[in-house]
Design a binder for these strands. Structure first.
Length: 505
RNA sequence: GCCCCCAUCGUCUAGCGGUCCAGGACGCGGCCCUUUCAAGGCCGAAACACGGGUUCGAGUCCCGUUGGGGGCACCA
């Protein structure tokens, strides 16, 4: 059976990592079954609306490489400065079989229509208590140590006319029954109707609340599986009731457990990196992030112990049965490891391209064809040394610019005295000047021979040569590094090191 | 306070009544490889929250306790 799923964020800021995980599950389910995954913007709260966030959300999915089968049109949105308004083209029509519009503020007439339908059929009623009045009622209930549940007989003005300002509230029926439903993750869930509020469905401003909008849209847009964070579970009975009132077939419910921070609390703004872009800027690659997030709460099961997955493998193996029911703690260690694994799987040229912006940010500009070529030669040697894209800069900067000649103590190896070190560097200079061809293997051969001749351990000699030639103690493999630097650069740097060492005598 | 959800190594998890003195992965420790740092290989420490049932037999089923999480808006 083909699943049609959706991700329905509010445009209130950056795409949050917890939301991304829910989106990934939804996307995997849809793709696994050959169905559709689309985006719907839930902008029914005008107060919390943050201009530009729809575009940022779209860009997040672009970066993740998750393609949408419906939703606001990418090209048009990208062309706009902000998304405070949507082009008329978004108003109608459908996209890959999913009927639009995909922005709730453009669907107001639908919510109004169905809210009125509920009133007509006795499943909802009009009310017009002010926020202040409601607040007072709530406080009174609290004073009696009771949970405040709004019911129609509590209305202060029971005779609200359709032509005066009012809200529409759902009637929870039957009053004394229970509402039960099956959840793909939680199993059978049951709520006492007496605990369910007569929720406002249509606000005074004509906008729907989430509860009405989500039900109307999911039904009209043919959503088969409702995946969302399990913080929605307590309001699910309202949605179940609405489906039943409307006589619409219920979708499959799946309330996915939340992602927790290391402190065991729901992952939120306070836990460091939150938005997809923050992870991107910290040097994580989408392949790793998707792999990691998928594993956070999902496992292939059936004795399959695979941990590293490509997108395609995830799509092939994903199933709701593998999604766990308990909350998962976000583990940065595992993310880092997976990032390294996926970076190693990249082709060197691909990695080189991805590195460019990170190098630029670190002051290493790779802005000419020559520099690109240089970077491509270097990358194979740093690939297994980079866990995050931000790791590369200190490993490669000395290829692209001059170095500080290291202080004398860095030029005297372990268990060595200054005269020996000086001699060793001079001999190294001779080797470097004469080796033919100036390549990795011949260099290594000659330098090892030099070790023999000097009676030095490789570590001793290579350490000071590394320092002299790169200015650092941690670098890619020495001889490959020297070969790429080139004979002239190596000689220059060796000469400066020799001079520095001499001066220190 | 009320309601709901959850409970296997520090973390992510496998386990769907016996084949589990509980398996894999991250992290951690040790060893090996080694020109630095990585990567890689091998080895190791590390868990069924507790208490009752059910059953010939329970990590697996039921109940309770404890602990954790979430929700109680004209926010999503």
């Amino acid at each position: 059976m083909k699943a049609r799923t959706r991700f329905a964020p509010s445009p209130t800021g950056e795409l949050h990592i917890g939301g991304v995980r829910t989106a990934i599950f939804s996307w995997l389910l849809a793709k696994h079954t050959g169905g559709e995954f689309y985006l719907r913007i839930e902008d029914t709260d005008q107060e919390r609306y943050v201009p530009g966030s729809t575009r940022r959300i779209l860009e997040s999915f672009d970066w993740l490489g998750i393609t949408l089968d419906g939703g606001p049109d990418h090209e048009e949105l990208r062309a706009m400065k902000t998304n405070e308004d949507y082009p008329g083209a978004l108003e109608d029509g459908e996209y890959k079989g999913v009927p639009g519009p995909f922005v709730q503020s453009h669907r107001l007439h639908l919510y109004k229509q169905w809210a009125e339908w509920l009133v007509e059929h006795g499943y909802a009623y009009r009310a017009n208590e002010t926020p202040e009045e409601l607040q007072r009622m709530r406080e009174e209930a609290q004073a009696r140590k009771q949970t405040f549940i709004f019911r129609e007989e509590m209305r202060l003005r029971p005779d609200v006319r359709p032509d005066e300002p009012h809200v529409i509230r759902m009637r929870v029926l039957p009053r004394d029954g229970r509402t039960e439903f099956d959840d793909l993750i939680k199993g059978r869930v049951s709520f006492d109707n007496a605990q369910v509020d007569d929720q406002v469905l249509l606000k005074m401003d004509g906008f729907p609340t989430y509860h009405l909008a989500v039900v109307v849209d999911d039904h009209l847009q043919g959503v088969t599986h409702v995946l969302r964070g399990d913080d929605w579970l307590p309001s699910a009975p309202k949605h179940v009731l609405l489906y039943r009132y409307f006589g619409w077939p219920e979708p499959q419910w799946a309330h996915v457990p939340n992602v927790l921070g290391t402190d065991g609390k729901k992952l939120s703004k306070r836990h460091g990196a939150q938005s997809v872009f923050e992870f991107r800027d910290q040097g994580y690659i989408p392949e790793a992030l998707i792999n990691f997030l998928a594993l956070l709460g999902w496992a292939p099961g059936g004795g399959d112990e695979q941990n590293v997955f490509t997108r395609e493998e995830l799509i092939a193996k994903f199933s709701m049965a593998g999604v766990g029911s308990s909350p998962a703690v976000f583990d940065y260690n595992k993310l880092d490891w997976l990032n390294g694994v996926h970076i190693r799987r990249l082709s060197p040229d691909d990695l080189a391209e991805r590195l460019v912006p990170f190098l630029a940010r670190a002051g290493v500009s790779v802005d000419t064809p020559e520099k690109r070529a240089l970077l491509r030669r270097i990358v194979p040697h740093i690939q297994e040394r980079t866990k995050k894209l931000t790791d590369a800069a200190p490993l490669v900067d000395f290829f692209f610019g001059d170095i500080q000649t290291p202080p004398a103590e860095m030029l005297i190896g372990p268990k060595m005295e200054q005269p020996l070190a000086l001699h060793a560097l001079r001999e190294t200079r001779r080797v470097v000047a004469s080796v033919e061809p100036f390549e990795d293997a011949p260099l290594e051969q000659a330098m090892r021979a030099l070790c023999e001749a000097l009676g030095l351990k490789p570590t001793q000699l290579f350490t000071i040569v590394r320092n002299a030639v790169t200015g650092k103690s941690v670098t890619p493999p020495l001889f490959a590094t020297m070969a790429i630097l080139g004979r002239e650069t190596c000689l220059t740097r060796l000469d400066r090191a020799i001079a520095r060492l001499q001066a220190s005598a």
